[in-house]
Amino acid sequence: MHPDDPSAQELTKGDPATRPADSASTERTNGRHRVPELPRRGRTLLASMPMRIALATGVSCCLGLATYAGTRVEVNDRSEPSAEAVAERAALADERASRSLERTAPTTPVSPTPTASPTPTPTATAKKAPKKPAKPRRPRPVAGLTQAQMDNAKIIVDVGRKLDVPKRGLIIAVATAMQESNLYNYASGVLPESQNYPHQAIGWDHDSVGLFQQRPSSGWGTVRELMRPALAAEAFYLALLKVPGWQDMALTYAAQSVQVSGFPDAYAQHEQRATTVVNALT
């Protein structure tokens, strides 16, 4: 031991028998040198460390147990409610719903607002179908005529009105057609060509054809033209308008001046019926 070591010098002054009892426990030797003794405060802290560690460990365990217990309580609280609790909650919900309906229900019925139906918009590709022309209304037969006879009489009257022929001329033309063809469009058995066109009867009076029994050989027109009722009526009116004073003549004389018939007095018998027909068509 070195004489300059203060701790060694302090130990050698007293009696070894008078050393504290715990000095031997606090001293350790390493070879022939002893470990210096710790101060009293250090020894106190060192001695209390095991107790503090134990206390901290116990507190941690208590906290862990409390947390676990709280978790278990929370888990147990989440268990399914009893049937009585479920029924009570359902009754309370129904009561609240009924009270809500009573507050929000209108006092007077409100009629729904009518919504306008959507108007279809035409597409760019859609095209309207062309309208078919309306068929002309057929006149109701009068004076004992059939529908075909009445239709032919209407053609005669329509052509005369387009030519601005007076009503007297219309009556003369209808009476002449009544005598010549009984208001039927005749073809000729002598002219087979005439039978190639629409016709309602066939006659055998030379080459006379059509409503007015006009002869192509006499210059009235072609067979095709005379077989068309409108062209045959036009040919008759043009000839009548050339007769001087025809409006002041008796019907039979005016008709004979155009037709040059072998029976000049036969036209007069149709004047009354022709007047009835013209009145019905004009």
Rank of each mutant, 00 (worst) to 15 (best):
S117W: 00
R103G: 08
V258D: 09
T57Y: 02
D248K: 15
G169D: 04
S117N: 10
A83E: 09
N279S: 10
E37Q: 12
T108F: 11
P139D: 02
E10N: 07
T115L: 14
P141T: 00
G189M: 03
R161C: 00
F236K: 04
V35E: 13
T276S: 10
G169N: 06
F263V: 04
F263P: 01
S23V: 10
R228S: 07
S98T: 08
K127A: 13
G58N: 07
A255N: 04
A175Q: 04
D4N: 07
G189A: 08
G58D: 13
M227V: 07
T222K: 01
C62V: 14
C61T: 12
V157L: 09
L238E: 12
V86C: 00
L240F: 10
T222C: 07
V260R: 15
T26S: 05
R138M: 09
W204S: 13
A8H: 14
S261C: 12
A17F: 14
G31H: 03
A173H: 05
V223F: 02
R224F: 00
L191P: 07
T252L: 05
T18N: 09
C62S: 13
A87V: 10
I156F: 08
V165G: 02
E74M: 10
R215S: 08
G31T: 03
S79E: 10
S48L: 14
S82D: 12
R161K: 15
H2I: 04
R19I: 07
S79L: 12
Y267E: 07
K167A: 08
G203F: 00
E84W: 05
A230Y: 01
T29V: 13
V260F: 03
R168H: 10
Q259A: 06
I156S: 03
P39N: 11
A83F: 01
W204I: 00
A175N: 09
P229K: 01
L11H: 09
A266C: 01
A266V: 04
D77I: 02
T176H: 06
D15A: 13
N30W: 12
D77Y: 01
T222N: 04
P122E: 03
L238T: 11
T123K: 11
L101D: 09
Y68F: 05
G210A: 00
V190R: 13
T67L: 15
A233S: 15
I53D: 12
C62A: 15
P3H: 06
V35F: 04
A90K: 10
M49H: 06
T275Y: 02
T282C: 14
R138I: 10
K132E: 14
T119K: 15
G42S: 11
A47T: 11
A280K: 13
